[in-house]
Write a protein that binds this DNA or RNA. Structure first.
Length: 604
DNA sequence: ATAGGGTTAG
């Protein structure tokens, strides 16, 4: 009876029955003890677990191998690795279950290298290795993001002939997490039996590696094979739709969820909130959020993030305040969302207050991301000196993201001195990140240091580093069309350029648009600069959307980098001239252009 | 009646 309760997740019932049994004068044996330990471990109830441990010591049941293994697992699941170690160390005998348990424990508790070491030890001692042990070692690979190690284990498994369908699925996600989509894909393709989990693993690998289109392609493939998505599969589909800003796909998935009655999961709701916000429809995020009855902090964080993304900093803070009133505990990511929301609209005092209570009231130690965000908030609000002081007094000088934030602000306010310091520091800390060279070069360009701009670009090239090209995309019908600057690859290329030239001319003549070449951050001739600006990817996307549709619906564009100032002006004027809303999602936030005005108030 | 691994949201 006790075991039945535990198998069905009814841990409190199991514990009550266990005590009832003791009160009735029945003495627990090693079997009932194990059930109790499993219950304690899954609940993370250290007190219960320790009590059972003590009982087993008093009654001489602790020397049993299975009891020992379960004790190791119980302490691991309660996060007490020191207790776990001492139980493991005192075991008289160990089998492959003991090793698997402790390897999984280290892998899941932030000591993946220890897990790997133990695996090597198992091999050295010649102990038995089975599929379950490999499963735990693969968890460690994922944590380490070590592609080489994954390959090594992969080979080992093939050589030893312990390759099972479970492991195939695990390997797909391990390779995906290690950034090796090609291997993940080949294992997926070669696996004979594909189920929801196989598909989900592969879709996640795609999404994690920025290949949302491919993930949605698999979704179609799954439909064709009549494999129905479960809620985990839907989570990655929603993330893919959000990445692409594919409102059509997102709504399609939402519809599927409604038909299947899968809406009650909190994880699904938070994904929906995020998807609708990422697709530019904050109203829909609100609708999903307002149905919310649960106290799940993730959903609240999603909604705060959604508001922040659309420049509604006040609303983000309001939701945070409501969250506090309802006694829902904000965590690190909640605070990142609130701080970002503040930084998008320069709510300095609120940002400071929230950064403070995060530490004082909630005892959360800021992550590097929080510091970077805080420095960004101050810096971009033109409190550069204060931001710099914070970097120095809080000892943030070894965090690259902090210098990125400071340098970005220096670019906005054309600050030469501080910009130079930040640039040097950043390139010293992270000399292999191409994004840093672009940022440094842009900051130099902002202060007219064209020779230095050229130097940085040359250095970058010399190191073989390449930046992602700027691109914009737009969903028309059931297709996503992608454009890079000066793109000539679209089948309707000629018409697009014709349309864009016409629109540009209209804006010049009727709305006073003049290309601002000071925003071109390359050292080229003036004429060339104008040409570069006029071929920016979001303008191609706007032109294409005009060709593709005649309606008055908003034009929704997504781009991978931040919007440039000249395109910002262009979009404002175009929204008024065309009498159409233009909604742009850039790398950090949304811009809603309407009637010649942008929702960001020209601050971004 | 009894112990260990896999897909997953902000």
């Amino acid at each position: 009876m006790i075991s039945g309760y535990v198998q069905n997740g009814l841990y409190d019932e199991a514990i009550n029955l266990f005590h009832e049994m003791k009160n009735a004068g029945q003495k627990p044996d090693h079997v009932s003890l194990m059930s109790m330990l499993v219950a304690s471990g899954r609940q993370g109830n250290l007190l219960n677990g320790t009590e059972i441990h003590a009982f087993s010591l008093r009654n001489g049941l602790d020397s049993d191998l299975q009891v020992g293994n379960t004790l190791v697992d119980m302490y691991a699941k309660c996060g007490k690795l020191d207790y776990m170690d001492s139980v493991f160390g005192r075991m008289l005998h160990r089998d492959s279950v003991s090793w698997t348990t402790i390897i999984a424990a280290y892998a899941q508790n932030n000591f993946p290298w220890k897990a790997v070491q133990l695996f090597y030890k198992v091999q050295a001692e010649g102990s038995h290795v089975d599929a379950l042990m490999i499963g735990s070692v693969l968890l460690a690979c994922t944590e380490l993001r070590c592609n080489l190690l994954a390959k090594e284990i992969h080979c080992y498994v093939i050589k030893r002939g312990i390759y099972d369908p479970f492991m195939q699925k695990t390997l797909v996600s391990v390779y995906g997490d290690c950034g090796n989509v090609d291997y993940a894909n080949s294992i997926f393709r070669l696996s004979e039996v594909k189920d929801v989990v196989s598909f989900t693993s592969m879709m996640c690998s795609y999404v994690q590696n920025g290949l949302a289109n491919e993930a949605l392609g698999l979704m179609l493939c799954m439909n064709e094979m009549r494999i129905e998505a479960d809620f985990v599969a839907v989570l990655s589909m929603l993330t893919a739709a959000a990445d692409l800003s594919s409102l059509r796909k997102g709504k399609e998935i939402h519809g599927f969820l409604v038909r299947k009655g899968l809406l009650l999961q909190d994880s699904i709701r938070s994904s929906l909130i995020d998807m609708y916000a990422s697709c530019g429809t904050l109203e829909n995020s609100y609708k999903v959020f307002n149905y919310l009855k649960s106290k799940d902090p993730v959903c609240w964080t999603s909604m705060i993030n959604a508001c922040g993304l659309h420049g509604c900093g006040r609303k983000a803070i309001d939701i945070f305040t409501r969250m506090e009133k309802e006694n829902i505990h904000p965590d690190h990511i909640t605070f990142l969302a609130v701080l970002r929301a503040c930084s998008h609209v320069a709510l300095i005092e609120d940002g400071k207050r929230i950064f403070k209570i995060m530490q004082s009231k909630y005892a959360l130690e800021p992550w590097p991301e929080h510091y970077a965000c805080f420095v960004d908030l101050l810096g971009r609000a033109n409190h550069l000196e204060e931001a710099f002081q914070i970097v120095k007094t809080m000892n943030l000088e070894d965090i690259p993201a902090v210098w990125c934030a400071l340098l970005g602000a220096c670019q906005v306010y054309a600050n030469k001195e501080l910009g130079e310091i930040a640039a040097m520091k950043l390139l010293e800390l992270e000399p292999k990140n191409p994004g840093n060279y672009v940022l440094v070069s842009n900051a130099y360009a902002a202060t007219n240091r064209w020779d230095d701009v050229e130097d940085v670009r040359v250095t970058m090239k010399g190191k073989g580093l390449k930046k992602d090209p700027a691109c914009s995309w737009i969903e028309v019908g059931d297709k996503v069309h992608t454009f890079i600057a000066q793109d000539k690859s679209h089948p309707e290329c000629d018409k697009i350029y014709e349309k864009l030239a016409y629109l540009t001319e209209k804006l010049e003549k009727e709305a006073g648009y003049v290309a601002q070449t000071k925003y071109v951050l390359h050292k080229v001739e003036e004429k060339e600069k104008v040409k570069l600006l006029k071929g920016h990817s979001e303008r191609l996307a706007i032109a294409y959307s005009l060709l593709a549709s005649n309606d008055r619906n908003p034009i929704r564009i997504t781009k991978n980098l931040r919007v440039c100032s000249d395109c910002h002006t262009f979009s404002k004027l175009a929204s008024k001239y065309l009498e159409r809303e233009i909604i742009v999602r850039d790398a950090k936030r949304f811009h809603h252009f309407r009637d010649g005005i942008c929702s960001c108030g020209d601050f971004w």
